[in-house]
Every structure is written in structure tokens, then in C-alpha cells.
Amino acid sequence: MKQMQCPLNGWRNIQEFAHGGEVVDEPDPNRCTDAEWAEYIFMEDNKAGLVKEWWCHVATAYWFIAERDTVKDEIVRTYDPSELFKERRDYTRPEALEGKS
């Protein structure tokens, strides 16, 4: 069976993990177009080569990032998301909606 190294729990069988899609930058939800938001939510690049993806170790509900080579079918590196996401992201209410419920 394939194995993956969980940054929290070490080497585990691949069946303990769930795939969570590509790591992509989130557009500003208050300023982007509907098409840009739809692209962010629904579309995958599905690139042949090195990709950066979200994975979850299901037994601990621990989300982390894996870099995979989809051509060689190899997992290159796994790491905690704090390496990429160093600050909390807060969301503000769009000005256009102020005063509306």
C-alpha cells in the first residue's frame, strides 16, 4: 500500500488520508468577479508535474500540505500549513451590504 508522511503522526497508509484539492490563493471575495470566485471554488488546474495540495489525516482531522509530482506519482514533501499561512485571515462585510440584513 502507498504511504504518506503526516507532519503530525508520521508514516501512515494512504487510506487514512483524504484529498482536499489544490492550494490556491483566495481572491478577495468583496472585490473579485463571480467568474473569478467560481474559478477559485470549482476549478482545478490538474497540472502534470509538481502540485501543492491540501490533505487531511482523517483519524486526527489534521489538515496539512503535500507537494506531489503527478507525473512520477511521488510525494515530494509534506508540511504544516503554518509554513504558508502565517497570519489569521478575517473577513469584512462588503460595504454594499451595510444596512441590509
Binding site: N9, N13, E16, V58, A59, T60
Partner: peptide
Amino acid sequence: VVQTNVARLNA
């Protein structure tokens, strides 16, 4: 401590 699947359950 080991957090893993036991008989297909998270444990």
C-alpha cells in the same frame, strides 16, 4: 500515543 484507524474506526 498513536492516532490511527482500528478496525476501520478512528481511534
